[in-house]
C-alpha cells in the first residue's frame, strides 16, 4: 500500500513537473508579449513592418544551407519516458513491441528562394539525409536482441523528398500576410536496406518505411503566415502548415500533419543586425497507415520551444543557429525521441 502511495505521488509529481515546465515556457513567451504590450499603443505610430523574414517580399534569389542534428535516443510512450526493458514487455495488437535503440539524423537542406514579384515567391527545399539506426527488434529483453526479432542496423545517406512551395502575399501593402501552397515530391528512395544483426538470419533487410529517406508519396502542403511588429523592439510571426499524402505508395501512407509556429524576434540588440528570437513549435501528426506501415508506434503531438539567433557576417551573408527543446510530447505507442535538436545554417542573398 505504501509503495502504491509513493508510486502515485511520483506519477503525480511527474505530471505536475511537466505541467509546470509547459506553463513556465508559455509564461516566458507571454511575459515577453506582455512586456511589450505597454508599448503597443505607441508601436502603431512608430513604424510599419516589412515582410523581410523567411517569407520575404524582397525581389530576387536567396540561398540557404542548413544542418539539423537530431539524435533520437530516448524511448518515450504517451507523455513520458519508458525504459527499453519495460518497452520489451509490451505486447501490442500487432505482436511484441519493437524496441529501437537509436536513430541519429543529420539533415543537410539546401533552400532556394526566389521572389518573383513583391506578391509572389517560390521556395524549394532539397534535403540530404544522413541517418543511422539500430533496433533490437521484437524479441528482446530491452538489452539484448533474441533470435528472429527482425533486429537490424542501418545507415543511409541520400537525398530525401524535395519540397516546392509557392506563396502569395499580396493581401496587404506590406506583404506580411500570405498563403502557402505546394507539394512534397517523392524524390527520395523508399527501398533502402539495412543489415540484419540477427545471427540466425543474416543479410540485407528492408528498413522501416518510416525511416526511409523518402516516403514514396506526393504530399500536398498548404498553409498561411503572418508577421508584424509589436513595438520598436519586438517583431512577431505565426505560421500554420498542413501536409497530407495524396495516395499510398506500396501499402504505406504517412500520417497527415499540422504544424503551428509562433515566434518573437528582438530587433534592438546592441550589436547591429544580430536578431535573437524564440519560437514555439507545435506539431500534430496522425499515425502512418497501410500494411507496410507501423500503425502503432507513429504519430503524436509535440510542443517545442526554440531559442535562436541570426548574425550578419557581410551585407549579403548571414549565419543562424537554433536549439529546439521539447516541452510537451505525447507519442503513440513507443517511439524514439530526441532530447533536443540543433540547427545551424548560412544564408546568402543575391
Amino acid at each position: 500500500m505504501q509503495t502504491t502511495n509513493i508510486t502515485q505521488r511520483v506519477i503525480q509529481n511527474k505530471y505536475v513537473h511537466q505541467i509546470r515546465n509547459i506553463l513556465a515556457a508559455l509564461s516566458l513567451v507571454a511575459g515577453m508579449v506582455l512586456m511589450s504590450s505597454a508599448d503597443a499603443g505607441a508601436c502603431a505610430s512608430c513604424g510599419c513592418t516589412l515582410s523581410s523574414m523567411q517569407f520575404s517580399d524582397v525581389q530576387g534569389l536567396t540561398l540557404d544551407l542548413r544542418w539539423d542534428y537530431i539524435n533520437q535516443d530516448q524511448l518515450r510512450t504517451g507523455t513520458g519516458t519508458i525504459s527499453p526493458v519495460d518497452a520489451s514487455k509490451i505486447v501490442t495488437s500487432n505482436g511484441p513491441q519493437e524496441v529501437e535503440k537509436y536513430t541519429r539524423n543529420n539533415y543537410f537542406t539546401l533552400g532556394i528562394d526566389y521572389v518573383i514579384t513583391h506578391e509572389w515567391g517560390v521556395n524549394v527545399q532539397v534535403p540530404f539525409i544522413d541517418r543511422s539506426h539500430e533496433t533490437l527488434g521484437t524479441n528482446s529483453n530491452g538489452i539484448v536482441a533474441g533470435p528472429g526479432g527482425g533486429q537490424y542496423e542501418s545507415h543511409t545517406d541520400s537525398f530525401g523528398d524535395i519540397k516546392v512551395v509557392g506563396r502569395y502575399q499580396g493581401f496587404t501593402p506590406q506583404h506580411n500576410v500570405g498563403i502557402l501552397f505546394g507539394l512534397k515530391l517523392p524524390t527520395g528512395t523508399y527501398t533502402a536496406t539495412g543489415t540484419s544483426t540477427d545471427p540466425t538470419a543474416p543479410g540485407s533487410v528492408p528498413i522501416d518505411r518510416g525511416l526511409q529517406p523518402g516516403t514514396g508519396t506526393t504530399d500536398v502542403i498548404v498553409g498561411a503566415f503572418y508577421n508584424d511588429i509589436l513595438s520598436e523592439n519586438f517583431g512577431y510571426f505565426a505560421t500554420a502548415l498542413f501536409q497530407a499524402a495524396l495516395y499510398a505508395q506500396d501499402h504505406y501512407m504517412p500520417g497527415n500533419g499540422v504544424n503551428l509556429n509562433a515566434g518573437l524576434r528582438y530587433l534592438s540588440f546592441p550589436v547591429s543586425g544580430v536578431v535573437p528570437q524564440v519560437q514555439l513549435n507545435f506539431r500534430f501528426v496522425e499515425r502512418d497507415s497501410g500494411s507496410n506501415a507501423d500503425t502503432i508506434n507513429t504519430g503524436g503531438t509535440l510542443l517545442y520551444i526554440s531559442p535562436g539567433v541570426t548574425v550578419p557576417v557581410t551585407h549579403q551573408f548571414l549565419v543562424y543557429g537554433f536549439v529546439q527543446l521539447p516541452i510537451y510530447q505525447n507519442l503513440n505507442g513507443v517511439q524514439l525521441a530526441p532530447r533536443y535538436t540543433t540547427s545551424v545554417g548560412v544564408h546568402y542573398i543575391f
Binding site: Y107, G210, F322, Q335, P338
Partner: peptide, 16 residues
Amino acid sequence: MKITVAILLLMITAPA
C-alpha cells in the same frame, strides 16, 4: 518516432 518530424517544426526566419 519513426519519422523525424521534429525538424519540420522549426521555421527558419533568417531575414531576406
